[in-house]
């Protein structure tokens, strides 16, 4: 990511969600990432990790920094259309947000954050209702 794009991303994040403390890590390495807290509507706090390798030209991988489990107790560590997840990396649950066909370099980290935060809220709802995530979150066409 160019310094100009990084500054732009930081400006957008600061403007759109000033209360959320985003921490950019290892930005001078080949494996940069950003950590962003999410508080769901029921008050539970998670941390989102977005890997920035290749961003913005490549779709960034996004994770919850733990291995989540479904209501039935199954680890969310694999690709699941019903739960909108992809195979785990770092030992974390990987969120399926944008598809590669819908990704463009114009998509901001803020948008990825919003989709991940919404995903987490629907995950909480899944834990409550038992309904799969794709009951709430539609699939990209």
């Amino acid at each position: 990511m160019t310094p100009e794009r990084l500054n732009l991303e930081k400006q957008v994040l600061q403007k759109e969600m000033p209360m959320v403390q985003c921490v950019f890590k290892d930005m001078s390495t080949s494996e940069p990432y950003v950590l962003m807290p999410v508080k769901t509507n029921i008050g539970k706090v998670y941390t989102i990790r977005i890997d920035l390798k290749g961003f913005p030209n490549q779709l960034p991988h996004a994770f919850v920094t733990k291995m989540l489990q479904t209501k039935s107790g199954r680890s969310m560590n694999d690709a699941s259309a019903a739960m909108h997840t992809l195979p785990t990396e770092h030992g974390y649950t990987r969120i399926c947000h944008y598809g590669s066909s819908s990704w463009t370099p114009m998509v901001s980290l803020f948008k990825v954050y919003i989709k991940c935060a919404l995903w987490l809220n629907m995950y909480e709802l899944h834990l409550k209702t038992g309904k799969d995530m794709d009951y709430y979150l539609s699939h990209q066409s």
């Binding site: 699941s80 399926c96 598809g99 948008k111 919404l118 539609s138 699939h139 990209q140």
Partner: peptide, 14 residues
């Protein structure tokens, strides 16, 4: 508040 309906309606991957 920021309207983010479009991000929902465009769907999620997989």
């Amino acid at each position: 508040g920021m309207i983010v309906t479009d991000m929902t309606s465009e769907g999620f991957a997989l």
